[in-house]
Amino acid sequence: MPNQKFIFPEQQFNRLFPFYFIIDSDLKVLRVGKSLSKLLPEMEQKKIDEIFIFKRPGHDELSFQTLGQLNQLIIIESKGAERITLRGQFEYLDDSNHLLFAGTPWFYSMDQVKAKKLTLHDFAINDPMIDLLQVLKTEEIVSGEVKELLEHMQRQKNESQTTAQRLGQLITNLQAGILLEDENRKIVLTNNTFCQMFGIPVPPEQMVGWDCSLSAEQSKHLFTESEAFVEKLQTY
């Protein structure tokens, strides 16, 4: 049926595309779908560039010709306070030399839909817009929770950093000599008293990361009683 024509009574067409509009070759609006006219009541007889800003495509010189050939997603936004976003496509109508816009308004939340005084009945039954809002809402809730979790973790991290700093300061100035190694015999922490005890001529912070199994051997020349130093350290 290559040339079969589909002819719809307007009422039925309105059920399928309640946000449609039709423009003539001067880009003047001739007819507006029943739900779209609820949103933008005074479209008829105006030129589309008086009513809408083209978001996508946003950089083309738009003529009747190019709009008819654009085989592309169209995003337009109404001028003025209303700021209604529509997404859809243009189709060239051969018989009448008009362009049909078939599309739906785009909302970011059910609240917006309500604020525009639309209800479920204003959308075509086949239009998944409302369901998508549901999905977006769930996503919004989840990412809010993830954000909260992250902030919580960031706070905990900062707190434990502060605690570690305080403890570090306390240990540095403690009267007892301390040296803490990790499981690979690397120095994790030591303090002034320890350095003084062994006469180590470097500040304790600098010793962090030293390998204890080697560093005693390597640094023994720094000490007057070098062998005794190594021996003494091995016992720790």
Binding site: R56, P57, G58, H59, D60, Q72, L73, I75, T85, R87, W106, Y108, L136
Partner: peptide, 21 residues
């Protein structure tokens, strides 16, 4: 390519996506 970011743009309202032609 032109349709690519246009579609994503609607889902993420804070997007300032590039436009391709």
């Amino acid at each position: 390519l032109p349709n690519f970011h246009s579609r994503i743009m609607l889902i993420y309202p804070n997007l300032k996506p590039p436009e391709f032609r």
